[in-house]
Design a protein around this nucleic acid. Structure first.
Length: 307
DNA sequence: AAGACGAAAGTGGTTGA
DNA sequence: TCAACAACTTTCGTCTT
């Protein structure tokens, strides 16, 4: 390890890991990559693309890397050397140079982006399949030049969001936003843009997919959980769900079934984990009571408590 | 005192002319 | 491109436990 670096400039940790192959020093405490191009001088990571228009690289503050200890930047795909025939040399060399530049630009972009994607994905504890799907989406997006004019990070977040939806493990925009450091509306925008451009089908997410996660962070038992799924199904039949935010509905269903099972949670608590407000829960809750004739059960519960 | 409830005004996004 | 619109939020006052 070179003399100069002994402490992590970010967190002052001394637990540094020198990866000779990639010429990186990685702080094991906070995940900061300290030196990137000591050996491998072909990788000009710090340079911005030579393509015009793409200079908004500064994105989320890197403090988020603190959460990712096992930061892995393993990315495959070395670009092939371009072996094209050679006759009109000058012209051809220029072309080749261009091609090379473009391909390395894409490759560089991918390398950075996939590292970012991995980070966010591990922060959210997303399954491998989702991670791969989103990497695929992102790769497609880069190849079609959809990243231009947008920050890399926001496209990564959008790809992740889309992949989550497709695999029925939805995260809310809030969660993605917290994990990636990109604003909610920005993620939503790029998400819509990318899915539209790539022709990815966007089925509205099912409230039931949120139940398990919300329930576990509220520490509700399995019975309550399945009850809330039932409630959701009834609600869907009564057409209470269309046009409403799925998280709000999921939250209300959970709230009701928690009441029914004597595992009462306050509206505030449920609202927090679902990322909606109490008011929304109240509205959905009221609709549920009206349509599903659950009033009696609730009242029974209350009487039972008084005795 | 905390939680539940509801009204009113405000916000961001979608839709349709 | 703009206005209407629905869903959701914020804020605040009142009622209930």
């Amino acid at each position: 390890m070179p003399e100069l670096v002994k402490k992590c400039p970010e967190c002052s940790g001394i637990n540094l890991n020198w990866n000779k192959d990639r010429g990186e020093i990685i702080c094991r405490d906070c995940g900061l990559v300290i030196e990137e191009k000591m050996v491998d001088f072909t990788q000009e990571w710090r340079e911005f693309d030579s393509e015009d228009g793409e200079r908004r690289r500064a994105g989320a503050p890197m403090t988020y890397t603190q959460y990712d200890h096992g930061l892995g930047t393993e990315v495959g795909q070395k670009a092939d050397l371009f072996k094209l025939g050679g006759k009109e040399r000058n012209k051809f060399f220029r072309l080749r140079k261009w091609q090379y530049r473009i391909s390395t630009a894409i490759e560089r972009n991918l390398k950075l982006a996939l590292a970012e994607l991995k980070r966010v994905s591990s922060f959210l504890k997303l399954p491998k399949s989702v991670e791969e799907e989103s990497a695929r989406i992102y790769t497609l997006a880069v190849q079609r030049g959809l990243v231009r004019g947008r920050s890399m990070e926001s496209v990564v977040a959008g790809a992740l969001y889309a992949a989550c939806r497709r695999h029925d493990v939805p995260r809310t925009l809030d969660e993605l936003s917290e994990a990636s450091g990109i604003e909610k509306k920005e993620i939503g925008r790029t998400y819509r843009f990318v899915t539209r451009e790539l022709g990815i089908s966007i089925l509205p997410s099912n409230p039931a997919d949120y139940i398990a996660r919300f329930a576990s962070s509220l520490k509700l038992n399995a019975e309550t959980q399945s009850k809330s799924i039932e409630i959701l199904e009834q609600a869907q039949k009564a057409e209470l769900t269309s046009g409403r935010g799925p998280t709000g509905i999921a939250a209300a269903a959970l709230y009701v079934s928690a009441l029914l099972h004597g595992e009462k949670r306050t509206q505030r608590e449920v609202a927090d984990v679902a990322g909606v407000t109490e008011v929304t829960i109240r509205n959905r809750y009221k609709e549920l009571l009206d349509e599903l004739k659950l009033e009696k059960e609730i009242k029974k519960k209350k009487k039972g408590k008084k005795r």
